[in-house]
């Protein structure tokens, strides 16, 4: 049953077995085509496994479904250095902390340090207490001179 498959996906995720999680998500999709949770699990599992090409393929396979995968797609574009395309995908999206974090990294790679710092300023309202964030802000300040 689909419930058992999702239980299996959950266990694989907990174990960090992301390729396995993606495979089981695919089984769900065979039984329940277009299942949104399964689509999301498959895409995220490939991203977590650093299989960006496979994540892209899963996103493309779901293109006709009414599921917004644009953040995942933007992240995959960023990983493949398609930075303008990544920015386009983020444009107009709600400024969640995830969107702002990705945006700041894209701006950094593009050398747009003012925009990068402005993303970090907007991130402050989320009160993220993260050493990674502090390190990235320092990197941007150093790069900005």
């Amino acid at each position: 049953a689909v419930e058992d498959l999702f239980t299996s996906i959950h266990r694989h995720i907990e174990a960090g077995a992301f390729e396995q999680a993606a495979k089981v998500a695919d089984q769900v999709l065979k039984a329940a085509p277009g299942d949104e949770d399964a689509v999301r699990c498959k895409v995220v599992a490939y991203i977590k496994a650093d299989e960006i090409d496979k994540a892209f393929a899963a996103i493309r396979a779901a293109e006709r479904l009414p599921i917004d995968l644009s953040y995942y797609k933007a992240y995959c574009c960023y990983r493949q250095n398609k930075l303008q395309e990544a920015l386009e995908l983020l444009r107009g999206q709600e400024e969640t902390s995830a969107v702002l974090q990705l945006e700041s990294q894209i701006f950094y790679r593009l050398g747009r340090m003012n925009d990068c710092m402005s993303s970090y300023e907007k991130l402050q309202k989320f009160k993220i207490d993260s050493m990674d964030l502090k390190i990235n802000i320092i990197a941007a300040l150093v790069a900005a001179g």
């Binding site: 995942y72 990294q105 950094y108 990197a139």
Partner: peptide, 21 residues
């Protein structure tokens, strides 16, 4: 330029499967 940590990777999240299991 210093290396920037990939915070966005951690921000990519699985959906909650609570109600699906």
């Amino acid at each position: 330029n210093p290396i920037v940590l990939d915070m966005a990777y951690n921000a990519v999240e699985f959906p909650s499967l609570e109600n699906r299991m």
